[in-house]
């Protein structure tokens, strides 16, 4: 059974597009990565799933029940960590823990464990907490009740690498315990690290939904060949699926191959004497950028990529920036 399922989910804010015709399915027991730059519709989708927004069209089903604005029964089984953490500034972390416990009929079974693992002091007021510590509190509030479905919207934002790793480990443990995680992120390395399946959203639309392994495996490869004799780029350039060939020297060519074309490339290469051959899968970053190349936004997105693959600002058309830049 799919834990989350949407069919033609559409949300417009007036004329501004949040998400359009989004159909996806999240099976049980996996980490599903929902990937896209800022403004692409990730948060809008999540808010529709939680019943905070009323879809303009289409429908969503979560944990076997159709989502409605009054879906309190479903939310009992969901843990949610918002992308932009907003808490009651004057209250302490412990007050927040008790507040959420009051709604959920008792203290979360994982509360103490998470407090310890994140080294979080709940006695301080929220306004005294750093961004990272607020994020930790939000994570504890969302995960403490060991929900069947965990919806995380950019959960590691503001966390240092050690705490990021702690989050990844908690996610992996929840999966091992049979839970499901829906992880929205623009940090590609994060998705590559923890997700089994990924949906890529562009301009409010789902442009790909695949297993991460398959996506990485078949989409894009770099083939580097050292020939025994000088070889011009044209030797590989005419192959279908090869979109660029870069000569590193007269003897070395690097071809960028898209799709399932490895067999053809290898057969062509074998027509000459080969000294060395390396076939390397492209990283998720490059695969991701490929989805945006068609709209001519890849260079912008590439500019926005930081060292850890963080797509940290909206790509204008990809993110609906012309229409929905402020609405993710």
């Amino acid at each position: 059974m799919d834990i989350i399922s949407t069919r033609n989910l559409t949300k417009f804010y007036g004329k501004t597009r949040g998400v359009e015709d989004l159909s996806l399915s999240v099976p049980a027991g996996i980490v599903y990565g929902f990937l896209g730059p800022n403004g692409s519709g990730k948060t809008t989708t999540i808010r529709c799933l939680l019943g905070m927004l009323r879809p303009t069209a289409g429908e969503a089903t979560v944990l076997g029940r159709r989502v409605t604005l009054d879906g309190s029964h479903v939310r009992r089984r969901i843990g949610y960590v918002a992308g932009e953490v907003r808490l009651y500034e004057r209250e302490t972390g412990r007050w927040h823990l008790d507040y959420v416990a009051g709604f959920r009929g008792g203290r979360g079974v994982l509360t103490d464990e998470l407090l310890e693992r994140f080294a979080f002091d709940p006695s301080k007021r929220v306004k005294e907490l750093s961004k990272g510590n607020k994020q930790k509190l939000a994570l504890i509030l969302g995960m403490a009740h060991d929900p069947e479905l965990l919806i995380l919207d950019e959960p590691t934002s503001g966390l240092d690498p050690l705490n990021q790793e702690a989050v990844y480990r908690v996610i992996e443990e929840r999966i091992a315990a049979g839970r499901t995680v829906f992880l929205s992120s623009h940090i590609l390395s994060e998705v590559e690290r923890v997700c089994e399946r990924v949906g890529i959203v562009r301009s409010g639309r789902l442009v790909a939904e695949e297993n991460v392994r398959d996506l990485l495996g078949k989409r894009l490869r770099h083939v580097e060949v050292r020939f025994a004799e000088p070889t011009p780029p044209a030797f590989l350039a005419d192959l279908p699926g090869v979109d660029s060939v870069t000569p590193l020297s007269a003897f070395v060519l690097v071809a960028r191959a898209k799709g399932d074309v490895v067999d053809q490339v290898v057969k062509r290469v074998a027509e000459r004497t080969v000294v060395d051959l390396t076939i390397q899968q492209a990283g998720l970053e490059e695969v991701f950028l490929e989805f945006y190349r068609d709209e001519g936004t890849a260079p912008e997105a590439a500019t926005a990529l930081s060292g850890n693959g963080d797509i940290s600002r909206p790509a204008t058309s990809a993110g609906g920036g012309d229409e929905g830049g402020e609405r993710e």
């Binding site: 905070m52 309190s72 939310r75 918002a82 907003r86 959420v100």
Partner: peptide, 8 residues
């Protein structure tokens, strides 16, 4: 958002 993420 915190309130409506709860079963209420």
């Amino acid at each position: 958002e915190l309130v409506l993420a709860q079963p209420v």
